[in-house]
Amino acid sequence: MSKTNLYNLDLNLLLVLDAIHGERSLTRAGEKLHLTQSAISHALARLRTHFDDRLFIREGNRMEPTPLCSALHESIDPALKQIVSSIEDRGKFDPGKSTRCFRLGISDYLCTLLLPQILSQVEAEAPGVSIHIAQPTYEQRTPMMQEGKLDIFLGTKRNYSPFIKGEYLFSDREICVVRNDHPQVGKAVREDELASLNFLAFSLSETGQGFLEEYLYRKGLGHRIKLTVQQEVTIPHLVSKSNLVGTMAERLALHFSEFLPIRTAPLPLEDTSFDICQHWHSRSETDAANNWIRGVISKAASSLL
C-alpha cells in the first residue's frame, strides 16, 4: 500500500475491520455496526483490494486475521477507541453516563495494593466505565503512551520523555523477604552475609537491572542471583518454600506476610525508599476524562499516605 492510496481509503472501512477482528464473524460484525451482512462483505472486499491481502481467512465458523490484519489492528485499535471516546465525550466527561474504557499500565504490585480502591471508586462514580490493565516494562511505557495504547501508567520516577507528565502518589521502600525459619538470615541482612546467600531478584526492565541486581553487581556478587522474575507477587510464594532471599516493596511484603510464612529483613543500605507516581502524556493534560481518572487514582492512593 502506498501513501497515495491512503487518501483513497474510506476510514469507515477501518470500523468494519475492527468489528470483524473483534467478533470473528461477518454476521456479528454487521449486528454490531447495524449493517447487513452483504454490506459487511462488500466492505471487506474493498479492504482486501486496498491492502492487497485477504485480511481474514475463514476457519470453520470463525474469521481469523492474517498476520497483516493483526498488525494493522494493533495500530488502529487504540486510535479508533480514542476517536470514539472523544466524539462521545464531546470535550466533556460525565462519569455517570460514560462507557469509556481506560487503559492503565499497572504492575502486579500496584494491582494488589491500589487497584481495589480504584475499582471501588469507579464502580461508585462511573458504573459504565471499564478498565483495561497492562503491565509494560520500563522500556515499553513511553512508546505505549505516545502511541495511545495507555492513558495512564503508574510506577517509579524515571527519565521518561519530556512529554510524559507525572504526579506523586505515595512512597515505599525495598526490603528483603525470607521464609520464617530461614537458616541464615536474622532480623536484618548483614553485608558480610551477602556472599553466602542466594537471591531472588525482581526487574521490570528488558535490558537493565533491577534494584537488587544493581546492588549485588556493584559488589561483584551478581552470581548470587539465582532467579529473576517480572512478577513481584510471586516472590513471597517462592521464598516461602526455599532458602532464596528476595527483595520487594515493603508494603507488598507486609501484605503477604499476613497469610504466608514469611518475614521481612532490612537490607544493609541506609535508604532504599522510592516514590510511586502516575504518569500521562502532555496531550491529555486538559482532557476531561483523563483528568477524572487521575483524580480517582490520586484519591485511591491517598489511603497509602
Rank of each mutant, 00 (worst) to 15 (best):
E147G: 01
R54L: 12
S2G: 14
K157W: 15
L304W: 05
T112R: 12
T66A: 09
A19Q: 03
D275V: 14
K241C: 06
P266L: 03
E88S: 15
C277L: 13
V185D: 08
R46K: 13
R46D: 14
H132W: 07
T36C: 03
E250P: 07
L80N: 05
Q146I: 15
V189A: 00
P65S: 03
F259C: 08
E167R: 10
G105D: 04
S41A: 11
D52P: 04
D181L: 01
K81N: 11
A39E: 03
D77W: 00
T247F: 09
L150D: 07
V296I: 15
S75M: 09
G166L: 05
Q121E: 14
V84T: 11
F163G: 10
W280V: 11
G91P: 05
A79D: 02
W280F: 09
D275N: 07
P127K: 04
A19E: 00
A71L: 12
A19G: 01
F202T: 00
E125T: 10
K149C: 02
N8E: 15
S86L: 14
T264Y: 00
I152Q: 09
S75T: 13
H182S: 03
K149I: 00
E191K: 14
S196Q: 06
F102S: 05
E123M: 13
C101G: 00
A71E: 08
I235R: 10
S240R: 00
S38I: 08
V122N: 08
L260T: 09
P261G: 05
I118C: 06
K299L: 13
H132F: 02
Y138L: 12
A288T: 11
G295T: 04
L194Q: 03
G22L: 06
E191L: 11
V189D: 01
R224G: 02
L47M: 13
R218W: 08
W292I: 04
